[in-house]
């Protein structure tokens, strides 16, 4: 199970890569492992306003439907258009190929509420 150091994480198992005012978002290795085979991904359109803690997309495994929550508020400036055609990338490359959206963050202070890698790993271990 990987927990890259450079990322921040939410309690709903999304990861965030923050670069200037742009945040790239996906779901964690822990999340994809818990879901099992991912067979469907639904993402918002560019220009959508997302709100921290509110669902922005959907991931479906063979067995179940799960919402994906926005870690931060802002405007969606880019979506991974390849992902809906190859949802299995969520399993094979959760931190790279399976990035989901890029958000122009409206409130950098929201970053403070996210977990760092060590805290998130501990959180996952306590949840398991």
């Amino acid at each position: 199970m990987e927990f890259p150091e450079e990322l921040k994480y939410t309690a709903e198992h999304e990861w965030v890569l923050s670069e200037a005012d742009i945040a790239t978002v996906g779901i964690s290795d822990f999340a994809q492992d818990a879901l099992g085979d991912v067979v469907f991904v639904e993402l918002p359109e560019v220009g959508t306003q997302v709100e921290a803690g509110k669902p922005f997309g959907v991931v479906e495994s063979v067995k179940a439907v799960s919402d994906v929550y926005a870690p931060l508020s802002g405007e969606v400036v880019e979506v991974n258009a390849e992902l809906p055609d190859a949802p299995e990338m969520v399993n094979t490359s959760p931190y790279e190929d399976a990035w989901m959206i890029k958000i122009r963050v409206s409130d950098q202070a929201e970053l403070e509420s996210l977990m760092d890698a060590a805290a998130y790993q501990e959180f996952c271990e306590s949840e398991h």
Binding site: G36, D37, V39, S61, V62, K63
Partner: peptide
């Protein structure tokens, strides 16, 4: 295996993955 409560039984829902 990933175990689930299936009608009151502790049952395996998957081992290596449902598709596999």
């Amino acid at each position: 295996a990933r175990m689930v409560d299936f009608g009151g039984w502790d049952m395996p829902v998957q081992y290596t993955g449902v598709i596999d």
